[in-house]
């Protein structure tokens, strides 16, 4: 599955990373090399093999429904790029 510049633009947009036209070709070359490495997988017959998401076969532990967290807004917002009246500020969201 060969990549092209269109793909680079598409995935860069999905990942919200600006890739300039001049960077795009270099990125394409590097990513194509990595995909070449990945392609080795296609030679393996994996029919009927269950995918493995976790290394151990254990199930989810559940947390008791208890409020354990307190308000730390001041501390958390001390490292925020832009806040006002307790809100995080971003350029206007258009719906």
């Amino acid at each position: 599955m060969a990549l092209n510049l269109e793909d680079i633009k598409r995935i860069a947009h999905l990942a919200r990373i600006e890739v300039s036209d001049t960077e795009a070709q270099e990125t394409l070359n590097k990513l194509s090399g990595i995909l070449g490495l990945i392609e080795q997988m296609q030679a393996v017959d994996t029919a009927g093999i269950a995918p493995m998401s976790h290394s151990q076969d254990v199930t989810q532990r559940l947390r008791e429904d208890v409020v354990t967290q307190t308000n730390q807004r001041e501390l958390f917002q001390s490292i925020a790029p832009a806040t006002q009246d307790g809100l995080y500020l971003v350029p206007k969201v258009i719906e």
Partner: peptide, 18 residues
């Protein structure tokens, strides 16, 4: 991304088990 998940991600998870 759409259309590639099975060929890459799922396949990789299967080989991970192997």
């Amino acid at each position: 991304s759409a259309g590639y998940y099975d060929a890459y991600y799922l396949k990789a998870q299967q080989i991970r088990r192997l």
